[in-house]
């Protein structure tokens, strides 16, 4: 399942090793993921519950946290709670949400809490490695499904001047989201729109910011309505 369309165009951080903490309640999945990750990625810690995760993250201060959306412990908030509990580190530590769930409310909730992207657990080793580097570099990682959620939430009509900037996607951002939803990698998006990959990344980050900050009424309503998807 090529949930993450970054293959081949990632910018593996110039030999710099990335320190990662894995947070997932399934030990089998954690060990599988560890084996799948590129050797240049250094797994410095693992956690299985919300409390453990917050403690390990505070102690290790990793570059990237691979965070399962559904976690036991805490107040039942799962990944969202881990991010909230690590809010002080958000400027240095980036969170990439992992999930088997396609449910929009889970995904959108964890993104709005501060995660830099979302991929499904069936992702291949190369793709997840690429996604980790991308997130470590400050970019956002959108799977086709997340792009679909965004288009659903913000609507497919481009922004008017009158609209609050946060409540609508610009025409260009819409185009980028559409292509990602269609399964295009960032590189292919860039080629299709005759822009640079860097510009694509900028657009995606802008969309992520809107998704996180928008108080758009439709967005919350949509998330509530689309509980089942």
């Amino acid at each position: 399942m090529n949930s993450m369309q970054g293959t081949g165009n990632g910018t593996p951080g110039a030999g710099k090793s990335v320190r990662v903490v894995l947070v997932d309640d399934h030990a089998i999945f954690r060990s599988g993921l560890k084996a799948d990750l590129d050797p240049s990625i250094q797994v410095v810690g693992e956690a299985a519950t919300v409390e453990q995760a917050i403690a390990v993250i505070a102690q290790e201060r990793p570059d990237v946290v691979l965070l399962d959306v559904h976690l036991p412990g805490g107040l039942g908030g799962g990944g969202r709670e881990v991010i909230a509990g690590s809010a002080a580190l958000l400027s240095t530590t980036r969170f990439l949400a992992l999930s088997v769930s396609d449910a929009a409310e889970d995904v959108v909730a964890v993104i709005r809490a501060g995660a830099r992207g979302y991929v499904t657990k069936t992702i291949s080793g190369a793709d997840i490695t690429d996604a980790v580097y991308r997130v470590a570099g400050g970019d956002a990682v959108f799977s086709p499904r997340l792009a679909g959620f965004v288009l659903d939430a913000f609507g497919t009509a481009p922004a008017d001047i009158a609209d609050d900037e946060l409540d609508r996607l610009s025409a260009r951002e819409l185009e980028v989201m559409r292509l990602i939803a269609r399964g295009y990698s960032y590189k292919e998006v860039a080629k299709e729109l005759f822009i640079s990959i860097k510009t694509v990344e900028t657009h995606v980050s802008a969309v992520l910011r809107k998704l996180q900050l928008s108080s758009r009424h439709e967005l919350t309503k949509w998330a509530a309505e689309r509980r089942l998807l």
Binding site: M1, N2, P144, G148, L151, T156, A157, R178, A181, R182, G183, Y184
Partner: peptide, 22 residues
């Protein structure tokens, strides 16, 4: 021979389907 991405968009009654392979 690999994963196939399908994207369906319906807006204003107009339906578009994109089927992409690698």
């Amino acid at each position: 021979g690999g994963t196939v991405s399908v994207y369906l968009e319906v807006s204003g009654g107009r339906a578009e389907v994109f089927i992409k392979d690698r």
